Amino acid sequence: MSRSLRRGTLAATAVVFSIAALSACGAGNDAQTLQIKPDNAAATKGEIKIQNALVITQGEKEKKGPAVVSATLFNSGTKPQTLDAVTLAGGKGGKVVLKSAEGAGKITVPAGGSVVIGGKGNASAVIEGGRTAVEDGNVQEVVFQLSSAGAVPLGAFVVPATGMFADFGPSAAPGTGATPSGAPTPSPGSTSGTPSGSSSQSTGH
């Protein structure tokens, strides 16, 4: 299969997966009952579970600017953990700048709760290198560094900020041209506020 065709297939798969997950939201929040599992990148290490991870670039193909990482982090433990860093594996450039929902301080994943990265009013992870660091249609290995769990790597689809991803793209991140709203927004492709197959937890907000 050619490289360009492979990229197109990955991008189409990401969109189809996310549409399926969002359709589950419309039918109800009990994804387990619907037998819907998270379709975007997910990984678990220790008490930390990461779901619906995506790298979202600028909506216009030729537009320069930062990209962002979007994901939901769950903490099943009894102590909070902080997200100390997000890096792009594989020798990719591009510094990732983290900001909490309040715009200052570290991003905390509360004990027995979760935190959303991406979208207005949420914490953000901005890739300063933008399109020089990532390319639409690829799968980019992203490493989340947690204070207790350590490094949690996973492969995230790289998609442009169009359609259902528009509200989670670079323009929604604080300091990139958008004014955050006061209410948190679920990450794209998420089926509920709890990990698939897990009991409901307090978000700590």
Rank of each mutant, 00 (worst) to 15 (best):
G103R: 01
D39F: 08
L154E: 06
N29C: 13
A104T: 15
V134R: 05
G177I: 04
S76E: 10
S148T: 14
N122D: 08
P170K: 06
P186N: 10
S181G: 15
K120L: 11
S192F: 04
K61N: 12
V96H: 12
T108C: 09
A172H: 04
M164T: 09
Q32R: 12
D167V: 10
G8A: 13
K99T: 15
V143R: 07
V115K: 00
D167H: 05
S114V: 02
G129H: 06
A43Y: 03
Q201A: 11
A12I: 06
S2A: 12
D136Y: 04
D136A: 14
S147R: 05
K92M: 07
G105V: 06
K49T: 15
A43D: 04
K79V: 11
I50M: 01
A42W: 04
K99V: 09
S76I: 01
V134F: 03
N138H: 06
Q201L: 11
G163E: 07
L88C: 08
Q58H: 05
R131D: 10
S76L: 07
A71K: 01
P153A: 11
K45V: 09
G150M: 00
T87Q: 07
S114L: 06
S2T: 15
V96F: 10
A27H: 13
G113D: 03
V97Y: 00
V16N: 08
V68Q: 05
L34A: 15
N52L: 06
D39C: 09
L146R: 01
V69A: 09
F165R: 01
T78F: 00
K106M: 02
V97A: 10
A20T: 15
T9N: 10
L5Q: 13
S198L: 00
N122M: 01
T179R: 10
P174N: 05
V139L: 15
A21R: 05
L146Q: 08
H205T: 07
T87C: 05
P170Q: 07
Q145P: 04
G204V: 03
A20M: 14
P188W: 00
K120N: 11
I19W: 12
G175M: 03
V143C: 02
V86Q: 00
G8C: 09
P153L: 09
S4I: 14
A166F: 09
Q32W: 07
T78Q: 10
S190T: 11
L73S: 02
A161D: 05
G129C: 08
S23M: 13
G65L: 01
K92V: 06
K106D: 15
G130C: 04
G130P: 01
V86A: 05
A166T: 13
P38G: 08
N40L: 12
N29K: 14
A125K: 02
H205G: 13
A42C: 11
